[in-house]
Design a protein around this nucleic acid. Sequence first.
DNA 1: CATGAATGAGTATTCATTCAT
DNA 2: GATGAATGAATACTCATTCAT
Lengths: 212, 212, 212, 212
Amino acid sequence: MTKKEAILTAAQQAFGQLGFTAATVKDVAGRAGVSFGLVSHYFGSKQDLYLAAAFDMADRLVDKLSGSTGGEGSGLDKVRRYMAAYFDFTEEHRYRFPILLRCSPFSHLEPGVDARRVAEKFGVFIDILKGCVEEGIADGSIRPLPREKTALIIYGNIVGSVRTSLLTPYESKGIFLDTIEHVTRSLERHPAAGGCWQPVEMANADSGTPDH
Amino acid sequence: MTKKEAILTAAQQAFGQLGFTAATVKDVAGRAGVSFGLVSHYFGSKQDLYLAAAFDMADRLVDKLSGSTGGEGSGLDKVRRYMAAYFDFTEEHRYRFPILLRCSPFSHLEPGVDARRVAEKFGVFIDILKGCVEEGIADGSIRPLPREKTALIIYGNIVGSVRTSLLTPYESKGIFLDTIEHVTRSLERHPAAGGCWQPVEMANADSGTPDH
Amino acid sequence: MTKKEAILTAAQQAFGQLGFTAATVKDVAGRAGVSFGLVSHYFGSKQDLYLAAAFDMADRLVDKLSGSTGGEGSGLDKVRRYMAAYFDFTEEHRYRFPILLRCSPFSHLEPGVDARRVAEKFGVFIDILKGCVEEGIADGSIRPLPREKTALIIYGNIVGSVRTSLLTPYESKGIFLDTIEHVTRSLERHPAAGGCWQPVEMANADSGTPDH
Amino acid sequence: MTKKEAILTAAQQAFGQLGFTAATVKDVAGRAGVSFGLVSHYFGSKQDLYLAAAFDMADRLVDKLSGSTGGEGSGLDKVRRYMAAYFDFTEEHRYRFPILLRCSPFSHLEPGVDARRVAEKFGVFIDILKGCVEEGIADGSIRPLPREKTALIIYGNIVGSVRTSLLTPYESKGIFLDTIEHVTRSLERHPAAGGCWQPVEMANADSGTPDH
DNA sequence: CATGAATGAGTATTCATTCAT
DNA sequence: GATGAATGAATACTCATTCAT
């Protein structure tokens, strides 16, 4: 790993734990094992570093979501695969993911962070999910529901459970799978049949092998 | 309004907008129209002020939720009334509520804030909701589901939609009512009948008359 | 004890322990069990209170030294009685005396304290001692030594041992009596005879009954 | 002189004049001609700077006292040389020495200063002096006296005269030499002979060439 | 007499940023 | 590429003092 990569990883962890304001450039440099001068040498200002760290994680997540929602399957299946991939990603990057909880349009952006650039970047997450919902309504696996709002509600559902799992002290083992079922029950057009969708697979359903 | 109350209200707004670290005591004093010395005179340290501001809002919300979930009705009804009351509260206190989004165990607590005191305070929100779920399972209005996790998922649903509505630039008009239906569809035991629950009433269903 | 007296006593203790700058008016009020407004009501500014507290102790000490050095006896005897009275006083007022260690021309006066008023007040201590030395030289009990400097050296001897006893963690039990002998050996004109002076009596030679 | 050294020297002067609480970091930076940020960059907190400044002077003084009390001579001679070296040091560093008057176990340590670290450091001064006294008692140049207490009394004598000279407005020219004679008369075993000790030499007997 | 609300100057400390090496 | 010396703006907090009740 180059020193530049080390700085980026350290920034993701530091900002994820402490937030933009409370994390310090010196702390990032310390975690990365480099002098603090090198941070600005590579990434410029603190805000630039923050966005670089967040966007790097966002890009990885977009890749994963795009990959998971492609291919065969009903729209409802794809919604389920989207959720599973999202949850999987949070556990895969347990220490680096939290920056996305902070640097997102669903969170309070701290002053000094350019909100427009963030909203633009994260619109993609909603768009991919909305595409799955639309597909499901078209193929009959999902009830006729308002597309945009339904995507937002599901996304809120996802983030809500991620927050519960990562941040709270409450007992939430297995909440990710339950959340997928919760959403499925609400969306599915033919609950009686029960066979309109495939079971999801999550690499790290309970504990997994997180980074670091 | 006494100056002490003015400081508390100003703190709720300032911390809600900017967060614990980024908000400054000077800013709070300025919003309240008092000298900054008076802030520490009444509330001590910044952290004490932060918790006082958050707990004041939490107490108000607990009162509202307790009141709304009492009385007649099925467990599913009570879940619906809980959600309606919660959403109502966010719109009623549009400028003072956000501190509860930040100072909660579902959020990253900024360094310097005592996490235990927060978790203890907010456990009540989950407990009330869990009580409604248990009641619904007992009276047959809600499917047999894991009680604790279901309460957490619903709570995550609520907070997810509040975040979408208050923080994102996405089009989310009416998302609160849709979220209630989303949760209802997922929980209800007899979807066919459709009559196990009563329509909810929200004082501020779309825009309302927020504070300030 | 009136509240005014309580404030003065509290000030002597607080300033003695913490010094002028580090002690606070609020702390003095707290020790005295009165509101801090009352302190300035009675004593005006912090500096005025400081000097009032110090001068009150100084006046008590001057009375004691004057009383002890009067009456019969050789000059050397009077020097010995002066020292004994001084040491006695420090033990009698163990918690209130230290302000005199701080507020004296032999100490660094903290900025904000009027040095002239202090030097004027404390000149009396040296003058009384110098009078004893002069008497001793005249009556032959003390060697012919420079009067002023000898008084200053003895006074330094006294204060040095008081500091050792009150402030240091070093083993110094009985140091007051040894200091008197140390000074006597240095001053006496006829050491061989050994009978030119009377034994001193100290009320609290080792531990005593200090105030508070 | 590097900026770091300049800060240390400035701190010695500022703390010596004003004391720990009253001296400000800003003042130290101003005297050293550097920005105040550099002070914490090099020395951390104000307390760390205070101890660094005091211990630097203490180390210099220990070196001087050790050097002066080594070599040939009776124990009484060594006590005299110890005193001469001590007095010499105070005049050599007239503006930087006073911090040792403040930051010593013989002074009130201001709140915020670690008393144990100070007591440990300054125990050496007493130990060296006690060594000389013991030597003198052994070789017969000093009367049989309690070793520890005698060392403490002499040390108090020294500090008393230093305080008189440096701090008071009283006429004290030549007091250092008189103090040495005062102590000598008290300690010497054979005053009649008068030849058991050598005359001391002080580099700066009256005014000298102080620093700065 | 007595209280404490209210003010604002002053201080230590943190930290992003720049720049010479 | 890499370091850390150097700066100064910003902030939480303390505290003496004033004044209305």
